[in-house]
Amino acid sequence: MASRSVTELVTAELRRSILSGALAPGQSFSLREIAGLLNVSFIPVREALRNLEADGLVVIQPGRSATVAPLALEDLEAIYRLRRLLEPDLARRSCLLISDAELDRLAAHAVEFGDENRSMDAIYDGHHEFHLALLGPAATPWDTRMLTMLWRAAERYVRIGFGLLDPDPDEHARRGRAHEELIAVFRRRDPDAAAQAVFSHLDHNEQLALGALRVLGSAQQSS
């Protein structure tokens, strides 16, 4: 029990460091470095890296080292291709199952995405909870498992895009409105409209991530 708890804590800390960019794409590190930094043994670090490799966030090297997975256009396109297959279909069914009380709760939650004082970590924790609650009534455990993996894989890309836009106060307001509009569409109990709304939401976030990749590519070419 204690070993599993330590592994979960190490996994969460490494994931946070990768998603925030503290561990940059392509950066290599040894198990010894991570174990020393977190004051734990090799065993939970090794297990944590296996978890993160399954999420596509690290590449484990032969021996006792790992590399943060690089950001790649083909990976981003694959992630969103899979999300478009899964999420609009879940939205189509969930809009007929989700309760009015849950939609009211999520509507209050959506307003928080417009708060420019919230940290990126807080926004993303809430963002995952929001979308899982919205699609959850139609999701099986396997759907939830796949959604979580895809969201974690996409998060690095979208966070970079949001980070570039973060200084603009209008962007915070747009985030709030975008999620309020999803709730409004689900209230109509129209499966086609709900599926299209989620599809459009995915399309916007993918374009945001693509823009971030272009900016990073230009910066690397000029450096």
Rank of each mutant, 00 (worst) to 15 (best):
87 E>S: 00
116 E>H: 14
24 A>C: 10
140 T>A: 02
70 P>E: 07
47 E>I: 10
202 L>W: 05
14 L>C: 08
45 V>L: 00
109 H>R: 13
128 H>M: 03
90 L>Q: 12
63 G>K: 02
81 R>M: 11
120 M>N: 07
117 N>H: 10
45 V>A: 00
217 G>H: 05
218 S>E: 12
24 A>F: 06
142 W>Q: 14
105 R>D: 13
80 Y>D: 12
214 R>V: 14
163 G>R: 10
206 E>N: 00
208 L>P: 06
98 I>A: 09
85 L>K: 12
136 G>W: 09
181 E>R: 12
206 E>V: 01
186 F>I: 04
35 A>Y: 05
217 G>I: 00
219 A>R: 03
36 G>L: 07
210 L>A: 03
39 N>D: 13
21 G>Y: 11
35 A>G: 07
41 S>I: 05
38 L>Q: 14
57 L>M: 09
219 A>Q: 05
72 A>F: 07
63 G>F: 03
151 W>M: 10
199 F>H: 15
212 A>K: 00
187 R>A: 12
181 E>D: 11
161 G>L: 00
109 H>I: 04
136 G>H: 11
71 L>Y: 09
200 S>P: 01
223 S>Y: 06
209 A>M: 00
181 E>Q: 15
79 I>S: 03
75 D>V: 06
127 H>R: 13
183 I>D: 01
45 V>W: 00
207 Q>I: 03
120 M>H: 06
212 A>H: 04
203 D>M: 12
43 I>S: 15
161 G>M: 00
82 L>N: 10
161 G>S: 07
171 E>H: 14
108 A>C: 10
200 S>R: 12
58 V>K: 04
126 G>S: 11
126 G>Y: 08
4 R>I: 08
99 S>A: 04
108 A>D: 13
1 M>R: 11
101 A>L: 12
96 L>H: 07
18 I>T: 13
116 E>I: 08
13 E>Q: 15
196 Q>P: 05
96 L>A: 15
70 P>A: 00
104 D>F: 04
24 A>S: 15
190 D>R: 11
137 P>F: 10
124 Y>F: 15
170 D>R: 11
213 L>V: 07
220 Q>T: 01
63 G>C: 09
151 W>P: 01
171 E>Q: 13
109 H>V: 07
99 S>H: 00
112 E>P: 02
70 P>S: 07
73 L>P: 06
3 S>F: 07
53 E>L: 07
220 Q>P: 01
88 P>C: 02
185 V>P: 13
72 A>E: 15
186 F>C: 09
100 D>M: 00
181 E>S: 10
119 S>G: 15
